[in-house]
């Protein structure tokens, strides 16, 4: 499996939400729905504080429980990669995959009814471009690439910086990394 990863530097992420708007326009995500979102985590007591911003989305899990539990095969790993996609023509809207995602990363396309989610912009990845969110981020804190290539930016960052993933205990093996 070719492993694509997103590496996001929380040291420079400012929580601006540009990545969210970029996703919405690029992918024509309907009003009121989001494939990505920003979380702010603040800890401490004034004036002893820390704040972390995180741009979150589907983690394109190597062990994707959403794919495992989909009864129709509509949710699948794309072309031998870890990129998880939904084929609208195969999707019954049973929502098993939504319940199966520990990151609440899926959405129901209203009014159509099939399930949608972040695609890692595979239509761009296929052309060698970064996902829309990554290429819009004004602080350039987002990075995208293949973990199989040791020389890629993402591999390099994970080798040289401290990082975390969200809820690793899920066992889903998420592929969105946060540099800390």
């Amino acid at each position: 499996m070719t492993r694509f990863a997103m590496v996001i530097d929380t040291k420079t992420c400012i929580g601006c939400g540009d990545c969210v708007v970029a996703c919405k326009t690029e992918n024509r995500v309907p009003d009121g729905l989001n494939r990505d979102w920003i979380v702010e985590a603040t800890q401490g007591k004034y004036p002893q504080l820390t704040t972390e911003f995180r741009s979150e989305r589907c983690n394109h899990c190597s062990n994707a429980t959403c794919v495992t539990l989909c009864p129709t095969g509509a949710s699948h790993h794309w072309a031998g990669t870890n990129i998880v996609l939904v084929d609208p023509d195969m999707c019954t809207g049973c929502k098993a995959c939504i319940a199966a995602c520990p990151y609440d990363a899926r959405l129901v396309m209203h009014p159509d009814g099939y399930i949608d989610k972040c695609t890692f912009c595979h239509h761009r990845v296929g052309e060698g471009l970064d996902p829309a969110c990554v290429s819009s981020c004004p602080t350039r804190c987002m990075h995208f690439g293949s973990l199989d290539e040791p020389s890629s930016e993402v591999s390099r960052l994970l080798k040289t910086r401290e990082y975390k993933v969200l809820s690793p205990e899920t066992g889903n093996e998420p592929n969105v990394y946060y540099l800390i």
Binding site: V20, V21, A22, S135, S136, P138, R140
Partner: peptide
């Protein structure tokens, strides 16, 4: 209209628009 992105030759934008600029549509 599809989207608006930054012009890579531009010093003001460094090739990337901000949240509001991306929301231009």
């Amino acid at each position: 209209i599809w989207k608006i992105t930054g012009n890579p030759d531009d010093l003001h934008s460094g090739g990337r628009l901000c949240t509001r600029g991306t929301g231009g549509p």
